[in-house]
């Protein structure tokens, strides 16, 4: 699943550490989500979307053809 997290974070001039602290997750988790290595839980996805004042669909892009784990 692709996402716009890095783009949105940079637009607002927030560091990974700051975002991680606000969402109460580790900085590595934010990095992994941005790189597409890790797909967050629905709860974290919701928290991220709410942090940027958007819906989940606006932040995360679901690709049906790709094999998801």
């Amino acid at each position: 699943m692709k996402n716009r997290l890095e783009e949105l974070r940079k637009q607002q001039g927030i560091r990974q550490e700051e975002l991680a602290s606000a969402l109460e997750v580790s900085r590595q988790t934010i990095g992994s989500i941005e790189n597409g290595r890790y797909n967050p839980s629905i709860l974290l996805a919701y928290k991220i979307a709410r942090y940027f004042g958007m819906t989940i669909e606006e932040v995360f892009i679901f690709e049906e053809t790709k094999d998801e784990h």
Binding site: A20, S21, E24, V25, S26, Q28, T29, S32, Y38, P40, S41, L43, L44
Partner: peptide
Amino acid sequence: EIEINDERN
């Protein structure tokens, strides 16, 4: 606490 409860970890 964050490191322990972190969902990726």
